[in-house]
């Protein structure tokens, strides 16, 4: 029944190229408020592809992702201000942020679940405080303008290409041993260690890669937007990123795109008044978690399987835990 792997990979590649083309056309064609929505969806998709590695495949709910996003944006702006070439500044911004990701990973690799979430949220809070208070570097609460490093066309092309390439990288990574290792960690980290997975190292690599995606998205966001301010990088944004992955379907290829579209759509398009869209999103998140734990994409996949009437044995929920915590004897 299934298409050969080569055909499937080819179809995915073609789809991602098409997605990049559509992203470019929308970025170049849509103006005003709607243009801003398109930009945010594109930028978030790039950033969340990284979050989908650590949170989607690895099951680690990182709330530090917006800090990496901010790192890319602010550091690249800083290097540009110093008159450094944009390519170098961007590379340094991403590199330094990934170093930050390494530190976060080293500090919090011993924590799990909600403790990991709280710990990484703390990182975001600290970064926010730095952005607001280190006025010499960051421009303080009002933010600062960003010099144009790439031409506008180059920024648009990079944004559009990064969506497809980023998702393509995720698609490949998810199919390598690295992806299997992360999924094993999500299912049962102790068991993974006991079949030989070097869990600490795998989590570290995932976190550093994830921060790289966030930082690169930040670089492009700063370039396109022209202004950056701490209010764009609050811990509320971190939560929304987490919600977006959950809504889209954690670990699924297109979860960043679908999740971003829903979250950005709610916060930017439907003007429900300040705070109300967050409340609606929160309720939506709870409902999806309760009713379709696999997110929108997981739900759709389940529906498609049911329509094809696959034997039920082949479609047990991936997330069903089969174990209880081991009791000491």
């Amino acid at each position: 029944m299934r298409a050969s792997p080569l055909v499937r990979h080819g179809a995915v590649a073609a789809g991602l190229v098409a997605l990049s083309v559509v992203a470019y056309l929308l970025l170049a064609g849509v103006q005003g408020d709607r243009g801003q929505v398109v930009l945010l969806v594109v930028v978030w998709t790039i950033a969340l592809t990284g979050l989908n590695l650590i949170m989607g495949l690895g099951g680690y709910p990182s709330l530090a992702h917006v800090a990496f996003f901010a790192g890319g944006a602010y550091l690249s702006a800083y290097f540009l201000e110093r008159g450094w070439p944009m390519a170098l500044g961007a590379a340094l911004a991403v590199g330094l942020t990934m170093l930050g990701g390494l530190v976060v990973a080293l500090v919090f690799s011993r924590t799990r679940g909600q403790y990991f979430a709280i710990g990484t949220m703390f990182c975001t809070a600290v970064v926010y405080l730095v952005l607001t208070n280190a006025t010499g570097f960051t421009g303080g609460p009002n933010g600062k303008p960003v010099d144009l490093g790439f031409s506008m066309t180059a920024t648009l092309v990079l944004l559009a290409a990064s969506v497809g390439l980023g998702l393509g990288a995720f698609y490949v990574l998810a199919r390598t041993r690295f992806g299997d290792r992360l999924r094993a960690i999500r299912e049962d980290e102790d068991l993974a260690r006991h079949v030989g997975v070097p869990t600490a190292r795998v989590k570290l690599v995932a976190m550093v890669l994830s921060s790289g995606f966030g930082a690169w998205a930040g670089v492009l966001f700063a370039q396109y937007n022209g202004v950056i301010a701490p209010s764009q990088f609050t811990f509320v944004q971190s939560f929304l990123m987490l919600v977006a992955i959950g809504l889209g379907g954690a670990g699924r290829l297109l979860a960043p795109l679908v999740g971003s579209a829903i979250v950005i759509g709610f916060t930017q398009l439907i003007k429900l008044g300040p705070g109300v869209s967050q409340i609606v999103l929160g309720v939506l998140f709870i409902l999806v978690t309760l009713l379709v734990p696999g997110g929108v994409l997981g739900g759709l996949a389940q529906l498609a399987r049911r329509l094809r009437r696959t034997p039920p044995a082949a479609e047990t929920e991936r997330s069903t835990p089969v174990r209880v915590k081991e009791a000491a004897s």
Partner: peptide, 14 residues
């Protein structure tokens, strides 16, 4: 050296 556990532990839906 490989071990098993007192409680059943497997990778969920794998």
């Amino acid at each position: 050296i490989a071990r098993t556990f007192q409680t059943t532990r497997l990778f969920g839906g794998w």
